[in-house]
Design a protein around this nucleic acid. Sequence first.
DNA 1: GGCATAAGGCACTGATTTGGTGCTATTTCA
DNA 2: TGAAATAGCACCAAATCAGTGCCTTATGCC
Lengths: 169, 169
Amino acid sequence: MPYALGTLTSDMLQLTKRTEYGLIALVHMVDQAGTFVSAREISEHYAVPRRLLAEVLKDLCRGSLVSSQRGAAGGYTLSRDAEAITVGDVVEALEGAPTLAGCESTTTAGEPTSGDCDLEPQCPIRSPLHRLRESIWRQMQATSLVALTAPPTPMVQPRLPDLSENAAS
Amino acid sequence: MPYALGTLTSDMLQLTKRTEYGLIALVHMVDQAGTFVSAREISEHYAVPRRLLAEVLKDLCRGSLVSSQRGAAGGYTLSRDAEAITVGDVVEALEGAPTLAGCESTTTAGEPTSGDCDLEPQCPIRSPLHRLRESIWRQMQATSLVALTAPPTPMVQPRLPDLSENAAS
DNA sequence: GGCATAAGGCACTGATTTGGTGCTATTTCA
DNA sequence: TGAAATAGCACCAAATCAGTGCCTTATGCC
């Protein structure tokens, strides 16, 4: 009953539960596009803590990824096309923008906090690692919800779970 | 004085301090290839907590990334060629192997723990997300220490820090 | 031999993050 | 009016992480 995405031990690839729940909810909404899905429905379907999911959906709403409708028969629905919502968007909405390095970006404006990092000739890995991170980030930005709903080619994992019910709307 | 790699707010791209320190130490050792570098020397050079760095180096030693020499004039040295040590190796040694999903990989053997996850048709994002993670992981496996030492083309970050002293040996 | 200086091995603390819940207010439909 | 939904926010417990203490063992040098 629990969906069990799996937990990474390596922090570098770890998704938080919030992001996992958010992705699950969003993918679920892709099917129900056009209708409003309640947090209860999703939480019961995937055996996810309802209150926490509600909190996540709220953040997704703040991030303009979903639109909400209050009251009975209310719920959430995708606020834009599924192709236009990426994993990166979700991560950004739920874990905060990946300010690539505290030393050279405050939010996304580009104004360094106080230039305290320019005086760092010692750090040998800063810039190259930035590129790695940016690359990963680009990858997440390039992965949309539709890519999550329809597993295209089972290249890595030979055995795939039953995703037919979520294949496409 | 502190190297300040930078701290990510987004967990997905976050490196732990341990990994950061490990990478810094390893990159430092690339220069000193053939000689034994002490934890003290590295910690003083980059203003990194010595004891913690020692702990990290110990793990790198366990992971066979470096070799250690005890006693006075002892220290650590790369146990194989810098090209053959990747960021992925470091992450794996310091944060544990990125068992891509707790449900379908015990270590790296490929033997599922108990097949407890096969009964999960509900989770819509499991398999696709695996591919994303594997892709990211491949990227880290493809980034070697030499790639970290010599920043090739400043495509993303226009302004690069002074890395000349670590350019090549 | 003795001392200084290395790594090796734990175990432990303190701070932060994360997962999850409680409670209350507000909106909507029947 | 009442049930069901989101909105907001504060709060708690467990896990993780950064960092330290203390001791042992090994090596080089005097």
